[in-house]
């Protein structure tokens, strides 16, 4: 596809990278998303504000915001939005763009995602014990002390496997993910 020079390259990229993203053009700035968000109080900018900033092409400010990382994927904003904007999916887009550009200040959040996915890529299944120990040791060693108690309890109740579960056809999954990553670098959605 031909690269078109636009006035708002960042805004256009956000829309193009999200299925149904062009609904963002109709944002009324009504704040239903920010008002509905369970973690709204912890966000430095509400989704509504991020959209206004994106429209103003303020790439750095958007990607540095902690808001997408506080998204809990509850989809309240998406179903309530009067303009049918897929807000949750846009938060994922912001997260992806932030990781790609290496341009984010919510380090622990992104690292958690990356650790989690690392295990999936290794075993094909999630591995909570490994995740908890590795991620928390590196990021929240103090919390780890408290969490140890919970961890023992969980193991006792058979709720935390200490060895990872692994799928049989790991080579197949690896082949699929490798190809998918290659495709992902070709162009955006």
């Amino acid at each position: 596809m031909e690269e078109v020079q636009t006035r708002k390259p960042f805004f256009d990229r956000v829309m193009a990278s999200t299925p149904g993203g062009n609904t963002l053009l109709g944002c009324l700035q009504c704040g239903t998303c920010g008002g509905s968000c369970p973690s709204g109080p912890d966000m430095d900018a509400t989704p509504r504000k991020l959209f206004a900033m994106a429209r103003a092409n303020m790439e750095e400010d958007v990607l540095l915001s902690n808001a997408p990382w506080y998204c809990v994927s509850c989809y309240y904003c998406t179903v309530r939005c009067p303009q049918e904007i897929p807000i949750t999916d846009l938060m994922y887009t912001f997260k992806r763009m932030a990781i790609e550009s290496g341009h984010y200040n919510a380090e622990s959040h992104a690292d958690f995602s990356q650790s989690f996915c690392g295990y999936i890529e290794h075993y094909g299944r999630s591995f909570e014990f490994g995740l908890a120990t590795r991620y928390h040791l590196t990021h929240h060693p103090l919390q780890m002390v408290r969490k140890t108690g919970l961890g023992f309890q969980m193991i006792q109740k058979g709720r935390l496997n200490t060895a990872p579960d692994r799928i049989h056809d790991m080579p197949q999954l690896t082949a699929i993910l490798t190809e998918a990553k290659r495709i992902a670098t070709e162009d955006e959605l």
């Binding site: 009504c30 704040g31 920010g34 008002g35 709204g40 309240y76 009067p82």
Partner: peptide, 25 residues
């Protein structure tokens, strides 16, 4: 635009009231 109206009190002062949750844009 109001996100929700609820009777679920979360903070002191909310008990017995209707709480209007909104982003003050």
């Amino acid at each position: 635009r109001v996100a929700e109206v609820t009777d679920a009190a979360r903070m002191p002062g909310e008990e017995g009231k209707l709480i209007v949750q909104v982003e003050d844009t």
